[in-house]
Amino acid sequence: MSVTGKRYWRVAAVAAIALAASTGIALTSHADDTSTKDSSTAELPKHTLTGYWHNFDNGSTVKRLSDVPAEYNIVAAAFAEADASKPGAVTFGVSPEVSDALGGYSDDDFKADVKALQDKGQHVILSVGGEKGNVVVDDATKAANFASSVKSLMDEYGFNGVDIDLEHGINAQHMGAALKDLSSQAGDGLTITMAPQTIDMQSTSTEYFKLALDIKDILTVVNMQYYNSGSMNGCDGQVYAQGTVEFLTSLACIQLENGLSPSQVGLGLPATSQAAGGGHVDPAVVNAALDCLAKGENCGSHKPPKTYPDIRGAMTWSINWDATSDYAFAKTVGGHLSEMP
């Protein structure tokens, strides 16, 4: 996710083709695997919209958490920061710039707002990472520190869970151990989301994909970032340009046909053209992609091998950017998701 809301266009077609050639994209379907637990998402609707709330001021809007519209089922507070005193651990608090912009918005105000959203049925989770954040979990000690620090912040602020948005690389083994440890501490109902970049989910050999498969029994949803990407390989081996319905459906197909449940796959898009360096689409295009994946309708030139009625939904970067367009993304995509069977 871009803290500044502006990122350079990153053309990755060549890298993607090389990755696919070296590792292969197996299309053996595991989409009907019933081993995934539902307990971690029991309180969420079948189809969900995830959005990120800024704990910083980047020129979009500054909003109290309680201002988040009801269309957002999962609200990710962005971002937790690395704890310099304890490797692998993270910290969180309302930033001074947000507090000042709101005329004094305290941690206690934020905690009250977390409860207010939860009373309306929304989940509020803590996002770790972002474009500039770098939390390293690459050994057992750091994994334990990560789990204990996130659990402590969940207890303090009332968070429902955690979002993994680490864009500087992850270690699937140790982050997986950390999230399993967190799950054992938090119990059923823990919400775990991930927001990998497109290149991170091109093959099951990548660390992000390995992590998603390793924790699939406790994983809520992978909201891959279908933006700031350039062209990428789809599940049929063809290269698709970002900003199209075919890009969304063909890349989602890779996850859907390689081990994740449809209920664990979401489409992540920028709320506005200012929110990312590339990949923004009209919200109606997101709805078309959801229809294609769920019902085989409005697909464009690429049609996935089958339909996935349980497709989880969508994500946007971000709620604050969406506010600049009168919440067009939430109203259009969130409204559509609420009407999907």
Rank of each mutant, 00 (worst) to 15 (best):
residue 175 M to V: 06
residue 204 T to D: 14
residue 217 D to L: 00
residue 252 A to P: 10
residue 193 T to D: 10
residue 200 D to W: 02
residue 179 L to E: 03
residue 160 N to D: 15
residue 177 A to R: 02
residue 251 L to I: 11
residue 208 Y to W: 14
residue 161 G to P: 11
residue 201 M to T: 13
residue 238 Q to T: 14
residue 266 G to N: 10
residue 176 G to H: 12
residue 247 F to H: 07
residue 225 Q to L: 01
residue 192 I to Q: 05
residue 223 N to L: 02
residue 199 I to D: 12
residue 260 L to R: 10
residue 189 G to E: 13
residue 169 G to Q: 03
residue 264 Q to L: 07
residue 224 M to K: 00
residue 182 L to E: 06
residue 262 P to A: 09
residue 244 T to P: 11
residue 157 Y to E: 09
residue 262 P to K: 06
residue 187 G to F: 05
residue 191 T to V: 15
residue 227 Y to H: 07
residue 207 E to C: 08
residue 237 G to D: 13
residue 204 T to S: 15
residue 259 G to I: 08
residue 198 T to G: 15
residue 254 I to T: 14
residue 247 F to M: 01
residue 230 G to L: 06
residue 255 Q to W: 00
residue 227 Y to P: 11
residue 179 L to T: 04
residue 217 D to G: 00
residue 254 I to K: 15
residue 221 V to I: 11
residue 177 A to M: 03
residue 179 L to C: 05
residue 209 F to C: 04
residue 230 G to N: 03
residue 188 D to S: 14
residue 190 L to C: 12
residue 185 Q to M: 12
residue 243 G to Q: 06
residue 202 Q to D: 03
residue 239 V to Y: 06
residue 218 I to A: 05
residue 183 S to V: 00
residue 238 Q to G: 11
residue 200 D to L: 04
residue 175 M to Y: 12
residue 202 Q to R: 02
residue 209 F to W: 08
residue 216 K to L: 01
residue 181 D to K: 09
residue 162 V to S: 03
residue 233 N to C: 13
residue 191 T to G: 05
residue 264 Q to N: 11
residue 167 E to P: 08
residue 226 Y to H: 13
residue 264 Q to C: 09
residue 213 L to R: 13
residue 220 T to Y: 01
residue 249 T to D: 02
residue 184 S to T: 15
residue 206 T to L: 09
residue 267 L to E: 05
residue 264 Q to F: 03
residue 232 M to N: 10
residue 256 L to A: 14
residue 201 M to S: 07
residue 212 A to Q: 10
residue 184 S to W: 07
residue 229 S to M: 09
residue 257 E to L: 13
residue 211 L to W: 08
residue 173 Q to L: 00
residue 163 D to C: 11
residue 227 Y to V: 10
residue 223 N to Y: 06
residue 212 A to M: 14
residue 161 G to H: 05
residue 188 D to E: 15
residue 251 L to T: 15
residue 232 M to K: 04
residue 264 Q to V: 10
residue 178 A to C: 02
residue 181 D to W: 00
residue 205 S to G: 08
residue 267 L to V: 12
residue 191 T to W: 04
residue 265 V to P: 13
residue 268 G to W: 06
residue 252 A to L: 07
residue 232 M to I: 08
residue 161 G to D: 04
residue 201 M to E: 02
residue 249 T to G: 02
residue 240 Y to I: 09
residue 205 S to R: 07
residue 212 A to Y: 07
residue 202 Q to C: 02
residue 232 M to C: 06
residue 187 G to H: 11
residue 214 D to N: 12
residue 216 K to F: 01
residue 236 D to V: 14
residue 202 Q to L: 08
residue 249 T to N: 07
residue 167 E to T: 08
residue 188 D to A: 14
